[in-house]
Nucleic acid binder design. Structure first.
Length: 587
RNA sequence: GCACCGGUAGCUCAGUUGGAUAGAGCACUAGACUACGAAUCUAGGGGUCGGGAGUUCGAAUCUCUCCCGGUGCACCA
């Protein structure tokens, strides 16, 4: 059974179609104006414009066409031509029963599943993850959950940054520290040691050192460039080192992402597509896609109607090295061969807009993909309370691991202050603090539309009051507690009969689940689902305070209200899950 | 200079793709615990939607222009 809004849309669509007007104009949405009927249709006004007639008269014809329908209890025309709709009591009861009995809590599956590749996370082998990776990870993870839930075939790839100059930096800096390692001896014929010469802390230390030196020393930079080119040309010692770097890095990253509750299907990196590059470059040269310019092979991607001058994508540098545009193109080939996605989403910050425009155009020009099959899901920056990019006290970049740890610690404090999760044992208390801390930062991140820069304020995020992750967890925990009490009292959920206003409003909130998911997916922005989860929790709170359940006057009412509570819990937990959050049983 | 992303209540942010009197949370004011978890609920004050012009029955939303903040502009990723 579709949502009440969709059922009404179908009726109104029929009515518009019967008047030779576009069916889409019959779309019914929740009313924006409180105090009127719960649903509205605005289609009469654009239709009147199109048919050059009076909108109120046209609205009247629509109303006549739907007159007497069992689904609709009342219709009225208001203002310039709004059609306000009140569904029949039976529609609420039936829809509530449907949601209560549905594992998907009323959210439909897509009827046109796609193959979607989603590229997010994108951590760097050379550098520890920082705040910037938080948004990509949290947003990308929620998107993959949403797409899968709606029925698409999804593959996620972390797309590790393990190629290019940064690797040259690591190699040359390690060489300065430990020149006697066999990896640097060009005459050494192997085998190389199995034990890595560095740990994750070494990697985190070496890269900034080299990067800083190279910044004001051209010779030092050249050293790294040469090493990069040698690595890419296949120098065995450097390849062996690269493998160590990647292995050490992945071990650490897996811990971080497990802790964050974020999953990737593929742990591929830029270096994985290196074998594809020579043939790809050769193909581009032969087909005239790539051209020689200042000693470099480039792909011109500017178009005549461009408002700005777009620089070409550099495929091969004059030094013979490939850049990240090169590996991105090769990655598109690799994914095409292994998965053939209909759509690829790149969840990467807005600053890289130019780069993706270059890559997408180059890929289209080379005929690798259909137009529109690649999409940059861009997002804004994370700022401190001063409005500038989040920094540590001494001005350094904020490590993601530290950020998460402080959120969990703050959540722990909050729980203790409120006397929550007090009698569950130390281990369970720590588990609850983790869930609350992660919910705090994930919800805070996702509730903003992705392109806005948002202010990171841990005190606000970890509050149990207001529009926060912890509040939603609390709301779910409260319903769980209610369900246990009901079980103890022998009350069982039963047939739903919507009576009170608060019950009706709760059903209306439940009814909007599917459209919230659609909106989140269509905009590639889960904030629509955050809004839904919050308004559902609010609708439940109102219902909860206005409509006693276990103390209801009769058994039928108890059973009906308990069924509503159960349906709410199911949908709330599903929503949280799609946002990458999890509620404990008690806290 | 050019381009991209922003500018909405004191603060932090939504706004279903052009609809009705622009919403939420926090903060503030006043109420409600002999109460299924009051971390809740009820009511209230608070706005030149950055400025201006245009498109039309109707604009926070579309077009143009200007102002402010952030970001990016061939061999880093």
């Amino acid at each position: 059974m579709p949502s009440i809004a969709d059922q009404l849309s179908a009726k109104l669509g029929d009515a518009f179609a019967s008047l030779q007007l576009p069916r889409e104009l019959g779309r019914v949405t929740p009313a924006t104006k409180s105090g009127t009927a719960p649903f509205q249709c605005n289609g009469a006004m654009p239709a009147a414009k199109q048919a050059k007639c009076n909108p109120r008269e046209l609205a009247q014809k629509i109303v006549d066409a739907i007159a007497g329908d069992a689904l609709i209890a009342a219709v009225e025309i208001a203002g310039p031509g709004f059609i306000n709709l009140t569904p029949a009591q039976s529609a609420y009861d039936a829809r509530a029963a449907e949601i209560a009995g549905d594992d998907r809590a009323g959210a439909p599956l897509t009827d046109a599943p796609r193959k979607v590749m989603i590229d997010f996370g994108g951590p760097n082998v050379a550098k520890p993850m920082h705040v910037g990776h938080l948004r990509s990870s949290v947003l990308g993870d929620s998107l993959q959950r949403l797409l899968r839930f709606r029925g698409d075939d999804v593959v996620s790839d972390i797309h590790l940054g393990d190629w290019g100059l940064q690797m040259g930096h690591l190699i040359t800096e390690l060489r300065e520290e430990q020149p006697d390692l066999p990896y640097f001896d060009a005459d050494y014929s192997g085998p190389y040691p199995d034990t890595p010469p560095v740990n994750i802390d070494d990697l985190a230390r070496l890269y900034p050192l080299a990067s800083k030196k190279a910044k004001d020393n051209a010779d030092r930079l050249e050293l790294s460039r040469t090493a990069t080119a040698e690595l890419q040309a296949g120098r065995p010692g450097y390849r062996a080192l690269l493998n160590h770097f990647i292995a050490v890095s992945i071990t650490a990253l897996k811990q971080d992402f497990d802790a964050l509750g974020v999953h990737f299907d593929l742990w591929k990196g830029e270096s994985d597509v290196d074998p594809l590059i020579p043939a790809m470059v050769e193909d581009f040269k032969q087909r005239g896609i790539a051209e020689l310019s200042d000693g470099a092979w480039v792909i011109h991607i500017a178009r005549e109607d461009d408002k700005k001058e777009l620089p070409p994508l550099i495929l091969v540098t004059s030094g013979g090295a490939s850049l990240y545009g090169t590996t991105d193109l090769a990655t598109i080939l690799d994914r095409k061969a292994n998965f053939a996605p209909d759509l690829t989403l790149y969840v990467v910050d807005s600053a890289q807009g130019n780069h993706f425009q270059q890559v997408f155009r180059a890929a289209e020009k080379a005929g690798l993909v259909k137009e529109g099959a690649l999409e940059h899901v861009n997002f804004g920056s994370v700022n401190g309370t001063d409005g500038k990019r989040l920094r540590t006290r001494d001005g350094g970049t904020f490590r993601l691991a530290d950020l998460i740890a402080s959120a969990i610690e703050r959540a722990d404090q909050r729980l203790k202050e409120a006397g929550l999760a007090a009698d569950v044992g130390a281990e369970e208390h720590a588990r609850v603090a983790r869930m609350v801390g992660l919910a705090a930062i994930k919800f805070a991140d996702l509730q903003n539309y992705r392109t806005t820069n948002y202010v990171f304020d841990l005190d606000r995020f970890t509050s149990f009051e207001g529009k926060t992750g912890p509040y939603l967890l609390y709301a779910a925990v409260r319903v769980k507690s209610l369900m246990r009490k009901a079980a103890d009292a022998g009350v069982k959920p039963g047939r739903i009969s919507v009576q009170a206003d608060e019950e009706r409003d709760l059903v209306l909130a439940l009814d909007a689940f599917g459209s919230a998911i659609d909106q989140a997916i269509d905009n590639r922005a889960p904030n629509a689902l955050c809004d839904h989860a919050f308004s559902l929790a609010q609708a439940f709170s109102k219902f909860y305070s206005a409509c006693p359940i276990l103390a209801a006057p009769d058994d039928a009412t108890k059973a009906s209200r308990l069924a509503l509570a159960e349906a709410t819990l199911k949908q709330l937990e599903l929503s949280l899950q799609l946002l990458g959050m999890e509620a404990p049983d008690r806290m």
